[in-house]
Amino acid sequence: MRLTQSSPFQFSLVILLVSLLSACGFHLRGDYDIPDALDTMSFTSYDEYSTFTRVVKRQLRMNEINLVTPAENVPNLTLVSESISERTLSLYQNTRAAEKELTFHAVYRVTIPEIGDKTFTTSVTRSYLDNPLSALAKSVERDMLEDEMRKLAASQIIRQMARLKANIEAGTMNLDKDGAKISTKEMAQQEADRKAQEKVGSDLSNSDSVN
């Protein structure tokens, strides 16, 4: 069997390409292309010590976003609320829940100086079998699912931030999916929806803390 070795020319070509990429300022980021205007931003949360807050912070750093102290001239990402709800999908013959569905719901707001702010929501849904004969395994599985949903929700937040490039170029946060400016009536409806989302998220969070 004959082994193929890299020629000096191929090696030199690789070195040249690496040098060119470095010279033009190219660098790998995370999974998403965050706009340059959001390279530096502040991050606040309704609960600075929650697991989801730590997960989102980790995602921001993975995408090379420099987190700084909140200021009027600095973009901001705010976690407004988070909650986990569940519903029964199927039952055993004894009417006990056999399969359950978990939904992680988060409300967050992105503020960009001189452009405005916009509130978004993200949801992740997963299902699992509720086996009454293995309560410990069921508890561990649920914890793992919740961690997975938080990570996916954090990724969705970063993905949405990457989509704000059109808003930044247009100078407004009020754009529809086709990039056109939203009318005053639509803006008012969005504001009403935003307040309703925040209230629902807050109520769910308070309910979870009481339980």
Rank of each mutant, 00 (worst) to 15 (best):
V124G: 01
D178G: 06
Q197A: 13
M144W: 04
S155R: 07
D143V: 00
L133I: 05
F43I: 09
G25P: 08
I182W: 00
A106C: 01
L164N: 07
L3R: 13
L204Q: 11
L175Y: 04
L79P: 02
P75Q: 03
K151W: 02
T51Q: 12
P8M: 12
D176M: 13
F52K: 06
V210W: 10
S90R: 09
N131Q: 10
L20A: 11
N63P: 03
V124K: 07
H27Y: 13
T53Y: 01
A137F: 07
A166V: 10
L13I: 08
E148P: 00
T44E: 02
L175Q: 07
N94R: 01
K100Y: 06
Y108D: 03
V68Y: 08
G171L: 07
D33Q: 06
R58E: 14
G30P: 00
K199T: 12
E186I: 01
V55S: 06
L204M: 11
R54L: 09
V210A: 14
Q189L: 11
N206Y: 09
K181C: 02
E186K: 08
D36C: 00
L21T: 04
A166N: 11
L67F: 03
R61C: 00
T172V: 02
H105T: 14
I158W: 02
S83K: 09
S83M: 11
V68W: 09
N131R: 11
M1D: 14
K118C: 01
D208C: 00
F104H: 15
N63G: 05
Q156E: 11
F43D: 09
D130S: 14
F11M: 15
S183I: 08
F26E: 02
E114K: 15
G25S: 10
L21Y: 06
K118Q: 07
D176Y: 14
M41I: 00
D178N: 14
A98N: 07
L136Y: 15
F11S: 14
L60I: 05
R87L: 07
A71D: 15
E48N: 13
M144T: 05
V14M: 13
R150Q: 09
A180H: 15
S19T: 12
S90F: 10
E198D: 05
S22P: 00
T119V: 11
L67H: 04
R194Q: 08
N167T: 03
G171T: 06
R87Y: 11
V124R: 07
E64A: 08
A137Y: 10
N131K: 11
P75W: 01
V68S: 04
D193L: 05
D39W: 01
R163V: 01
M161K: 05
T125V: 15
S19N: 05
Q160V: 07
A97V: 13
A98H: 05
E141L: 12
T184P: 04
T69L: 05
I158T: 03
E146Q: 13
I15S: 11
A106P: 00
H105V: 07
V18A: 12
A180I: 09
L204W: 02
D31G: 00
Q59H: 12
R61F: 01
S209R: 10
R2F: 15
E148C: 00
M187S: 05
F120K: 08
I112E: 03
V80E: 11
K181S: 09
H27V: 08
I168W: 00
I65E: 02
L3M: 13
N63D: 12
D117Q: 12
A162H: 01
